[in-house]
Design a protein around this nucleic acid. Structure first.
Lengths: 139, 139
DNA sequence: TATAAGTCTATAAAGTTGGTGGGCTATATT
DNA sequence: AATATAGCCCACCAACTTTATAGACTTATA
C-alpha cells in the first residue's frame, strides 16, 4: 500500500502541475488547499527537491515549483522515492535489490511469480506521469 | 512489499504441498526444514487453518496438512490473508475497501491509475496457486 | 494416565509511520 | 543595514506494526 506520505506527495505534485510555469508556490498554500499537515509537507517537498523533481526559491516571493514538465515525471520515480520499492520482494527489486536469505533465486517459484507482478506493475507506473493525474480538472 | 510473515507462509505452504495427502506434518518439522521461528510459524499456521486453507490434528501423530489441493489455493487468497490488501490504495481495494478522505474517487487520476495496477496484479495472483510455487523441485 | 502436539493469551523489542517544534539561512524589499 | 519572508535543517515523539517469544491450556493417542 502507498503510505499517506506518498498520497500527500501526489496531491502536492498535482497542485504544482496545475501551476506549472506560473512561478513559485508557497508550502502553506499547498498545505491549505490540499489539506496536508504543513511541517510534514515541508519534509516531502524537500525530499522531492533533493531528488531533482522540484526546485525552490527562498525569501519573499519564494516557494516551490516543478523542475521538469509534469509529463516528464514518472509515477515510478515518485513512488520509489517517497514510498520505496515497487516490487513485492527485495530479491526481485531493480532499485532496492537484496539477496534472498534462505532461498536460491534461480530455483524459486515465488521469485518468478513476483518478477511477473513487478513487470506488470512497472508496465503501468513507468509509462504514466504526474500529468496523467490531472486529466479534466481532476486531482 | 510482502512481509516476512508472508514469505514464511509461502515456504510453509510449499513444504505442505510437497507432503500433500501424506498425513499430518509437525510444526517443528516445517520450522526446522524451512528455517522459520517455531512460535511464529505456529501463529501463521493457525491463521491459515482458521481461513480454511489448512487443517490440523492434535496429539500424537498430529500436525498440519492442506485442506485443499495445492492448485486450489490461489496466491491472492494467501496474500490477502497474511499480508493484507493487494491494492496500492484503500479506495481501489476489492476486499479492504475504504473511502478516500480528501478526494472524489470518480474524478481522481491516481485512483484510476491504481485500479489499473490492481487489475494487472490480480491478473497474475488470482491465476496462480501455491502449486506454481513448486515447479521442478523448487521452493 | 502419560505424552505428544496443536491452541490461546499475553508480552515485548525493534522498526516504521505520521507528525511537531524550534531555530537557522537565504532572499527581497525598504 | 534592517526587517520580513519563506524555505532548510535537526531533533524529537506518539502510535502503530512487525517479528518474534513465553507459558499455560486443551485434545488425542498409546
Amino acid at each position: 500500500m502507498l503510505s499517506k506520505k506518498s498520497q500527500y506527495a501526489f496531491k502536492a505534485l498535482t497542485y504544482l502541475s496545475e501551476k506549472y510555469e506560473q512561478g513559485p508556490v508557497l508550502i502553506s498554500e499547498i498545505s491549505k488547499k490540499k489539506k496536508i499537515p504543513l511541517k510534514f509537507l515541508e519534509n516531502i517537498l524537500l525530499e522531492l527537491k533533493k531528488a531533482g523533481i522540484l526546485d525552490s526559491k527562498k525569501g519573499k516571493g519564494g516557494g516551490y515549483f516543478l523542475q521538469k514538465a509534469p509529463d516528464q515525471i514518472t509515477m515510478a520515480t515518485v513512488i520509489r522515492l517517497i514510498n520505496g520499492p515497487i516490487s513485492m520482494l527485495p530479491c526481485v527489486s531493480l532499485y532496492f535489490y537484496e539477496r534472498c536469505s534462505n532461498c536460491n533465486e534461480k530455483v524459486c517459484g515465488l521469485h518468478d511469480m513476483m518478477v511477473e507482478v513487478r513487470d506488470a506493475t512497472l508496465n503501468i507506473v513507468d509509462n504514466r506521469t504526474i500529468k496523467d493525474l490531472l486529466v479534466n480538472g481532476r486531482g
